[in-house]
Measured scan of single mutants.
Amino acid sequence: NITNLCPFDEVFNATRFASVYAWNRKRISNCVADYSVLYNLAPFFTFKCYGVSPTKLNDLCFTNVYADSFVIRGDEVRQIAPGQTGNIADYNYKLPDDFTGCVIAWNSNKLDSKVSGNYNYLYRLFRKSNLKPFERDISTEIYQAGNKPCNGVAGFNCYFPLRSYSFRPTYGVGHQPYRVVVLSFELLHAPATVCGPKKST
Rank of each mutant, 00 (worst) to 15 (best):
L57Q: 05
T193Y: 10
P82M: 00
P169Y: 06
L187V: 12
V52Q: 04
I104S: 00
A18E: 08
P197V: 15
T85Q: 10
Q176Y: 03
G86W: 04
N13K: 05
T46Q: 15
C49Y: 00
H175N: 15
G101R: 00
S29T: 14
V65R: 04
N13I: 00
V71W: 01
S200W: 13
S108Q: 06
D9H: 12
N87V: 15
G152S: 10
W106T: 01
K148L: 12
D90T: 05
L60P: 07
C102Q: 00
S129A: 12
T100P: 00
K198P: 12
A190P: 10
V153Q: 14
R179C: 06
R168Q: 14
C49Q: 00
K198V: 11
H189K: 15
A105I: 06
T85W: 03
G155K: 09
T170I: 08
A192R: 11
T3R: 08
F62N: 07
S116I: 10
Y39K: 15
V153M: 14
T15D: 11
T63E: 12
C49K: 00
T3S: 12
D34Y: 03
P43V: 05
G196T: 11
C195I: 07
G172I: 14
V37Q: 13
V11I: 15
I80W: 01
L131G: 03
L131Q: 02
V181D: 01
F167S: 06
L95E: 00
G74A: 08
S129N: 13
H189L: 09
N13Y: 07
A145F: 11
G152K: 10
A14M: 06
A105M: 06
R25F: 00
L95M: 07
Y143C: 06
Y171E: 15
L95A: 00
N130C: 10
P177T: 03
L38A: 03
K56V: 09
F12E: 02
D68L: 01
K132M: 11
A190S: 13
A22S: 11
G51Y: 00
L131I: 13
V11D: 04
V11P: 02
L57C: 03
V11M: 07
C150E: 05
Y165W: 02
A81M: 04
D68N: 01
F160M: 12
G172E: 14
L122C: 13
V173Y: 12
R163I: 08
T55E: 15
S69I: 02
I104V: 10
C49M: 00
C6A: 03
F12H: 01
V103F: 00
F44K: 15
R127A: 05
W23R: 01
F134D: 06
P133L: 01
V103L: 01
S116M: 12
Q144A: 10
N1V: 07
G117A: 09
S69H: 01
F167D: 06
P169C: 05
F126C: 12
Y121H: 10
Y123D: 05
L188S: 15
R179N: 05
I104L: 09
T3Y: 07
P43D: 12
K128G: 11
E10K: 10
V77I: 10
A18D: 07
I28S: 02
C6D: 04
T15N: 08
T15C: 01
D98A: 08
N30F: 05
Y121M: 06
F44C: 13
V153E: 14
L111Y: 11
Y93C: 01
T85E: 08
V20Y: 01
K198H: 14
Y21M: 04
K26Q: 10
F185G: 06
S53K: 13
C195R: 05
L60T: 13
A154N: 11
S139A: 08
D34R: 03
S164N: 15
C31F: 07
F70S: 02
F167E: 06
H189E: 15
C49R: 00
G155W: 06
C150V: 05
D34N: 09
R73T: 07
R16V: 13
K94M: 01
G117K: 09
